[in-house]
Simulated assay, not measured.
Amino acid sequence: MALRKVSHVSEADHRIVTDAVAAAERDTDGEIVTIIAAQSDSYDDVALVWASLCAFLAMSIVALFPECFRALYDALRGGWGHQPTANEWLGIVLAFGAIKWIGVWLFLLWRPLRLFLTPRAIRAGRVRARAIDLFKVGTEAKTMGRTGVLLYVSLNEHRADIVADEAIAAKVAPEIWGDAMAALIERIRAGHPGEGMAEAVRQMGLVLAEHFPKSEGNPNELCDRLIEI
């Protein structure tokens, strides 16, 4: 049975973005690569931290209020059990912490909750790191003039990033891409990711045309089409 390809955007969005890249590159030696992803990281380590923190807090509460939990333990045994020794009580507390850890971990297998509990700064850092990794693989030093630039969108994190090759980074400060990012975010929030990426590409093309105008015989060295991962 053939596997169905998962698509983050429509075919129409693909055409809009691909056409925008081709149009932007007509006036510049710059090469724009566009990538869209559902999510940039699994955040397994975040789930691990939350599970460990909850388990620690649960055991700390038992340690702070031992008599309450001893009474509960005795009630669960019907009042007929012997009083646990110190070592037995330690084992009970550790088992309680382990159960708490497993419960939270299983709860956080639901990825939307895991993502929601991930601090914004961590999400931004992971998106940036993923963008840089993809840039190094598919864009960096792939053009003669080191004029490649990557537009990366990570949908679940609601984040995007632009990473430029050496020649572009030397002339264009990161904040110059602000108009492109603003146009992108505005349209994605409105539910139009293809239009957002296309407008961002158009804005990026204007910047590139100013600093790297089209030269005679410059080839199209990188793929124009929108890439989904």
Rank of each mutant, 00 (worst) to 15 (best):
M144C: 05
L150A: 03
S60L: 15
L90H: 13
A180C: 03
A190P: 01
G103K: 07
S42F: 12
P84Q: 11
P213E: 06
K100G: 10
E166G: 04
R159H: 15
A198F: 05
T28Y: 04
L48F: 06
W101D: 09
L208Q: 08
A75S: 11
E210R: 09
R114P: 08
G78N: 09
R128K: 12
W101M: 10
E67N: 07
E221Y: 01
P66W: 04
A22R: 12
D179N: 08
L108V: 02
I32W: 04
D29G: 04
A183F: 01
R189F: 02
W177F: 14
E11Q: 15
A86I: 09
P174K: 00
V49C: 07
P174I: 02
A12P: 00
E221I: 03
D45V: 07
R26E: 07
E228G: 12
S52W: 02
R146Y: 15
A180S: 06
A63T: 10
D224C: 08
A95V: 14
G194L: 03
V127A: 11
I185K: 05
L208D: 08
Q203C: 02
V17N: 01
E195T: 13
V172N: 02
H192G: 02
P119D: 03
L72M: 13
Q39A: 15
E186T: 08
R77T: 14
E140C: 06
L94Q: 10
G30W: 05
C68M: 04
R15E: 13
T85N: 06
A183Q: 06
Q39T: 14
I132D: 09
R128H: 11
T139W: 00
G145Q: 15
P213W: 13
M197T: 06
R15T: 14
G145E: 14
A63K: 05
A24R: 09
G103W: 04
A24S: 08
D44W: 13
I36E: 05
R189T: 03
A173S: 11
F65H: 06
E11G: 15
V207R: 01
I99M: 14
I35R: 00
A95G: 14
L108G: 05
G148R: 10
L76R: 03
D45P: 03
R15P: 03
G81C: 11
N87C: 05
I132S: 10
E25C: 02
V153K: 08
Y73L: 12
C223M: 12
R159I: 15
I35V: 06
S154Q: 09
Y73E: 04
W89C: 02
L155H: 10
D133M: 00
A167V: 07
T147Y: 00
Q203M: 10
A141K: 08
G145T: 10
E67C: 01
R26D: 10
L184Y: 07
K142S: 08
A121R: 15
F212H: 02
L115C: 12
G191N: 09
G97Y: 07
R111E: 15
R225W: 02
R159C: 09
E11M: 14
R70A: 05
R189S: 01
S40I: 06
A141M: 12
W105K: 14
W80F: 14
V127Q: 00
E186V: 05
A167L: 07
